Computed example of a mutant assay.
Amino acid sequence: MFFDQPLSRLRALALCAACCAGGGAQADILIGQTTAVSGSVAASVGEALQGVRAYLDHVNAQGGVNGEKIKLITLDDNFKPPLAGENARKLIEQEGVVALFMSRGTPHTEAILPLLAKHKLALIAPSTGAMVFHRPVNPYVFNVRSSYQAESKRAVEHLFQVSLQRVAVVHVDDSFGADCLEGGMHGFDSAGKKPVAVVKAAREKPDYAAIIQQLKQAEAQAVLWCGSGLAVVDGVKALRQAGSAAQVVTLSNNASSGFVKQLGEYATGVIVSQVFPNARALGVPINREATTLLAGQAELSPASIEGFAAAKVLVEALRRAGPKPTREKIIDALNGMQRYDLGGLELAFSPTDHTGLNYVELSIIGRDGRFRR
């Protein structure tokens, strides 16, 4: 169960992705996380945390890392950037975590950056593909997924490849949306085309009537829609209710079964970019491993496989850092992780490259509510 409580209560109720077996024994390695347990992206965050817990529970059940158990302290930021920054400060300065892990959202993660530099600790696997976390290389941010720009570029290129000519972009009016738009424009440039409309959507309360009117006036055949899960869901519903059959493409931040359920009858045919292999591709070793550890708990989804992969990178960094890992040792271990097999996916970090993985493909939601490649 998740809680949105003051820190004093959260310390007792915090989500421990892996608790010590038996008694009230304390975990040895403290890892901090601020993420949207509640709010507009809570569905996909919950699925990601299922993957995280499955792997960390498994590792702790085997004795932990170098004989030490891992405790993940998760604070809810309700998908609000200022709260994400405050949560990170509490985790670092009051809880004394040795690393931060899997924050969610672009402006939310940007709010954490000054704290990383001040306290010199790593943020591992932020759940955002914003280019600001890739280039220039931030010495404290270690990504475990491709960039949003790579995704949006690929999405736009695909739309022109399938002979759709009138393509529009709707993007949330924040740093994530600007990043998505920049990548999309690279796709337009490579196709020698221009968007028929570029529409900004307010982050808190999008004016869907005005957005849909602009799309209809532009006679858009397809829309690259960049926003949070609920924002895109409401946008797709408004578009369809207005009588438009335009193809909708969105990014991997919405690659979750929760997103599909929220779309309901409007889900079929929506394209979602992916940064990990199809969860049902059991020929991929990491998928087989995750499916086994999640058995009886949850079905593997794009969001849960991202959480699972992120947890594997965290554990490997702790293993390489040695007993009693410090903030400095963890950063050194990550920078030395130049070839690490996640299970059919090779991740690489170095002091000059913190992207980790370069994997992008597109999926479409089928009539059965599943992502198909």
Results as ranks from 00 to 15, higher is better:
168 A>P: 11
205 K>M: 05
217 Q>H: 14
206 P>C: 09
180 C>K: 02
150 A>C: 07
181 L>A: 12
178 A>R: 13
186 H>R: 10
177 G>Q: 04
190 S>R: 12
146 S>H: 09
189 D>Y: 04
176 F>T: 07
168 A>K: 04
143 N>D: 15
189 D>F: 08
151 E>P: 07
196 V>W: 00
182 E>C: 11
145 R>F: 09
190 S>N: 08
144 V>N: 13
198 V>M: 13
201 A>P: 12
144 V>R: 00
198 V>T: 09
186 H>Q: 14
170 V>L: 05
189 D>A: 09
147 S>V: 09
214 Q>G: 04
175 S>R: 15
158 H>T: 11
158 H>M: 14
219 E>V: 10
179 D>A: 10
199 V>A: 03
174 D>W: 08
194 K>D: 15
171 H>I: 10
193 K>D: 06
183 G>R: 14
141 V>G: 01
220 A>D: 01
163 S>G: 05
161 Q>R: 08
183 G>F: 10
144 V>A: 11
165 Q>Y: 00
151 E>C: 11
159 L>G: 04
203 R>I: 07
216 K>R: 10
140 Y>I: 08
170 V>H: 01
166 R>D: 15
142 F>L: 13
195 P>H: 06
213 Q>N: 11
174 D>R: 10
216 K>Y: 00
209 A>Y: 10
167 V>R: 02
140 Y>E: 13
213 Q>L: 12
217 Q>T: 12
191 A>H: 06
203 R>N: 04
163 S>V: 15
170 V>C: 06
198 V>R: 07
197 A>R: 00
210 A>R: 13
216 K>G: 04
169 V>T: 05
197 A>M: 06
173 D>S: 15
210 A>S: 14
176 F>G: 03
185 M>F: 09
157 E>A: 04
157 E>Q: 10
153 K>Q: 14
201 A>Q: 03
217 Q>A: 07
169 V>G: 00
152 S>Q: 02
218 A>F: 09
174 D>V: 13
147 S>N: 07
184 G>E: 11
170 V>W: 03
193 K>H: 12
213 Q>M: 15
185 M>P: 06
214 Q>C: 08
215 L>D: 00
214 Q>N: 02
183 G>T: 04
199 V>I: 10
157 E>F: 02
140 Y>K: 04
215 L>C: 01
178 A>L: 08
167 V>A: 05
158 H>S: 06
179 D>Y: 10
200 K>V: 01
212 I>R: 00
204 E>G: 01
214 Q>Y: 03
192 G>M: 02
187 G>V: 08
203 R>M: 09
213 Q>D: 15
